[in-house]
Design a binder for these strands. Structure first.
Length: 464
RNA sequence: GGUCCCUUCGUCUAUCGGUUAGGACACAUGGUUUUCAUCCAUGAAAGAGGGGUUCGAUUCCCCUAGGGACCGCCA
């Protein structure tokens, strides 16, 4: 039995979005589940629109989310000569032909079809005409001789049997007038060359499959299995497209989503295994199968992404969490100063309990990263005379403290509450504002202990 | 317009002819928490419509409606 091989084959004509990443993920998981190979192939035959920056973005995206591929990325344009050879062979075998229709002529036909409200399909004008009298001024394209009679059935691993009339598939172009191969040719040839056993892709490619299978058959190649997965839709219910600013991985990284969380979310979007929601990497590989893929398109739900992210943050080892936070802050916010690192790492146990994203953790830990506290006017008003009096009393008390811990601090605060006829808010809020510059944040004792006696005393003394 | 595909709570989904139609997110309410959150409990919330087949349909078949994809010398 042949070893399973899958591939992800994006074109570098735009940034890779989250839907493409899911396709890559499914291919990768399927091959890993079968102990097979997974490849990345950059389909850059459209030289006009292919950009290196997009290629880089694709590679970085896969790397970020942890999808690794065999060898290095394959570049489709490297094999163009081979694709052309196949076209020539098809031509020689009489399974393809030169078409001398001018683009004006084709346009005209399309226009007429539209007027008559009939579907346009190339009229196969040059199919049997032979080349007795080719127009000299026209560079021909090469078209594949599609089947004109009967039906074809695609045994799709996700969608089941799909049957169509062969005459709805036109004689598609395999070599352009400039001699370059088109997608359907290049993709088929490369998939064969690379030994693909399973093609898992978006169902926008379903119709192409009927064309590609004909190429395989014409060349006497073994036809791989196909699985067409439903596309991801936007909230509006339309296909995610690189043209309308569909979200890239960077958009999620930016708001503090962790790769594993997004991987987990993407896995469960349109795929399920019983009632299980959380899949670590090993479980994803172990349980992934094609049967679990749903047939209907699914919509992106940011709330679910947050919720899974929260789960990962709360359950992650703190050393690892810190690494993510450190990178996140350095990339998107501000660098965590070297001398603050231990302090923040040791505070993660309470910081992470209030966070859905790395951004939340950053916001909660600002008071530890920065020694300078900004207090806005509104909060400043809360620091009235009584508040300052209480803070001064508190500062005096802690200065006598040798051991700065919750156990020592609690009685001090409780006594202050009792003796000054105030509630906890009366002391907690001013302390919080003075120490963090915010009315919200971690628990008072967490703030105090993480800052330490000297820093607390320093910050409190600056008020008054 | 043609071809093909899809249709269970707002969202992601479970169910492979017999269930009080389950879970998760979001939402609402209550409790814990001396802020904001967390956490816990509870609640509201679904088989598009119509025909069949069957003792019995969410599940199988047909029709209708709605949604989507494709219809390039783009991929």
């Amino acid at each position: 039995m042949k070893i399973v091989a899958t591939r992800f084959a994006p074109s570098p004509t735009g940034p890779l979005h989250i839907g493409g990443v899911r396709t890559a993920l499914f291919n990768w998981l399927y091959s890993k589940n079968k102990g097979g190979k997974f490849y990345l192939r950059i389909e850059d035959t459209d030289k006009e629109r292919s950009k290196d920056e997009f290629k880089t973005q694709i590679i970085n995206s896969l790397k970020w989310i942890g999808i690794n591929y065999e060898d290095r990325e394959y570049i489709q344009s490297d094999k163009i000569d081979y694709h052309i050879n196949v076209a020539d062979e098809l031509l020689k075998k009489g399974l393809a032909y030169r078409c001398y229709c001018s683009s004006d002529e084709i346009e005209e036909q399309k226009k007429r079809a539209k007027q008559k409200k009939v579907p346009y399909i190339y009229n196969r004008k040059w199919r049997d005409k032979g080349e007795t009298d080719p127009p000299k001024e026209i560079d021909p394209v090469i078209r594949f001789k599609s089947k004109v009679e009967g039906k074809s059935i695609l045994k799709d691993l996700v969608q089941g049997n799909i049957e169509i009339e062969n005459n709805t598939i036109e004689d598609f172009v395999i070599l352009r007038a400039d001699g370059s191969p088109t997608y359907n040719l290049s993709a088929s040839v490369d998939d064969h060359l690379m030994g693909m056993t399973h093609i898992i892709r978006g169902d926008d490619h379903k119709i192409n499959t009927f064309k590609q299978i004909q190429i395989y058959e014409a060349m006497n190649w073994e036809v791989p299995s196909f699985a067409h997965i439903p596309l991801i839709h936007t909230i509006e219910g339309k296909k995610l497209s690189k043209r309308d600013n569909a979200s890239t991985l960077d958009d999620y990284s930016k708001i503090g989503i962790i790769p594993n969380a997004l991987r987990n979310y993407l896995l469960r979007l349109g795929w399920s295994y019983k009632d299980k929601e959380i899949f670590d990497l090993d479980e994803s590989i172990k349980y992934f199968n094609l049967e679990g893929i749903g047939k209907s398109p699914s919509k992106l739900d940011i709330n679910r992404i947050y919720s899974i992210n929260e789960h990962y943050i709360k359950n992650m080892d703190e050393n690892e969490l810190f690494k993510f936070l450190n990178t996140y802050c350095g990339t998107y916010k501000e660098k965590i100063p070297y001398q603050k690192k231990d302090k923040i790492k040791n505070s993660l146990h309470f910081l992470k309990n209030k966070a859905k994203t790395l951004e939340d953790i950053y916001n909660n830990s600002k008071f530890l990263i920065n020694d300078k506290i900004q207090i806005n006017d509104e909060d400043q008003k809360l620091l009235d005379e009584t508040a300052i009096k209480i803070i001064n009393l508190f500062t005096k008390e802690i200065n006598n403290l040798s051991n700065f811990s919750r156990e020592k601090l609690e009685p001090i605060i409780n006594d202050l509450i009792k003796n000054n006829n105030i509630n906890f808010k009366g002391i907690g809020q001013p302390i919080r504002i003075c120490l963090t510059g915010s009315k919200f944040g971690p628990g008072i004792y967490d703030i105090l202990c993480s800052l330490g006696k000297d820093e607390v005393s320093k910050r409190l003394s600056q008020i008054r």
